[in-house]
């Protein structure tokens, strides 16, 4: 590995955007800022997919996450509390501290595991086309595909039933 290639630079820019916007999601003071940085996180992750030559997944990521799910969250915020993010002063600072320490420990362990990972001979980049995905989806995983369709139908009906006004 000699110096920074263009791919490396793009990767670091995208990773920086994703991590920064994820931190903003956690710390934003206004709900609108939170949603906006969430969309930027998802777009940066879509860019990571393009970098990995998984174009179909990247496009699906943009459509489903940055498009549909962002609108879903905007509507949910509109119909619930949307003025402020915080609910007054926090009485449970200990809980926050313990969570931070625990998550940091988990991150440290994971990063240690990743850095000491023995990868057997980095293979050349595999480029899966949309045709490959379709063949696999309708061949090997056709039952899982149908199950996913049923799951989406059940989720659609369930969401309507749950969110509808009780007519009594």
């Amino acid at each position: 590995m000699t110096g920074l290639t263009g791919e490396m630079i793009i990767f670091f820019i995208l990773a920086l955007i994703a991590i920064t916007c994820a931190v903003i999601v956690i710390n934003a003071q206004k709900m609108s800022h939170m949603i906006l940085s969430m969309i930027f996180t998802f777009l940066a992750i879509a860019g990571i997919y393009f970098l990995l030559r998984a174009e179909f997944i990247g496009i699906i990521q943009i459509i489903v996450y940055a498009g549909a799910m962002a609108i879903l969250f905007v509507f949910a915020i509109m119909m619930t509390e949307h003025k402020v993010v915080s609910f007054g002063t926090e009485q449970h600072q200990v809980h926050k501290f313990v969570s931070f320490v625990g998550v940091s420990a988990l991150l440290g362990v994971m990063l240690y595991g990743i850095s000491t990972l023995q990868i057997p001979a980095q293979s050349p980049q595999y480029v899966g086309t949309t045709k490959d995905i379709g063949l696999e989806l309708y061949g090997t995983y056709v039952i899982a595909f149908e199950a996913a369709g049923i799951l989406l139908l059940v989720a659609l009906v369930g969401a309507i039933v749950l969110a509808r006004k009780e007519a009594d």
């Binding site: 998984a54 949910a76 899966g128 696999e136 989406l152 989720a155 969401a159 749950l162």
Partner: peptide
């Protein structure tokens, strides 16, 4: 990639039901 498609599907369903529960 096929499995990540399934993950995205389940995540979308989870978000829809979760937000409906939130509104209720």
């Amino acid at each position: 990639q096929v499995f990540s498609l399934f993950t995205i599907t389940v995540a979308a369903a989870e978000a829809a039901v979760g937000l409906a529960i939130l509104i209720a």
